[in-house]
Design a protein around this nucleic acid. Sequence first.
DNA 1: CCGTTGACCCTTC
DNA 2: AGAAGGGCCAACG
Length: 109
Amino acid sequence: MEQTFPQRIYKLVSLIPKGKVATYGQLALLAGNPRASRIVGAALAKAPSGLPCHRVLYRDGSLCCDRAFGGKEVQRGLLKREGVLFLPTGQVDLLHCLWKPDNSLLELL
DNA sequence: CCGTTGACCCTTC
DNA sequence: AGAAGGGCCAACG
């Protein structure tokens, strides 16, 4: 069954474990198109509730725009509560908290 | 089928 | 570190 891009995105996001984060580009890569990172954002914008979309951020660790999640502070609070480390600059420590998916996990797609 | 749209990413200043 | 401009690609009408 061929899934649409957003469908694969939803699946990937739901696989992100607590305490880890992923970037839009990362999800785009896992979904099959490294350059379709915008599609990831568009997909999350229409994503159903229950998805840990607050664990998805920019390539440099900066959080997404204020209109999402009800504010950056809210998103940062959620991530901190899950054990995600933050740098003095207020950005997420990607070097330590970036999600590294296993091959067995990707087979489920 | 073509144009518009968008929770991005990269380069450069 | 933050801001501006250009490019990419799939979904939708």
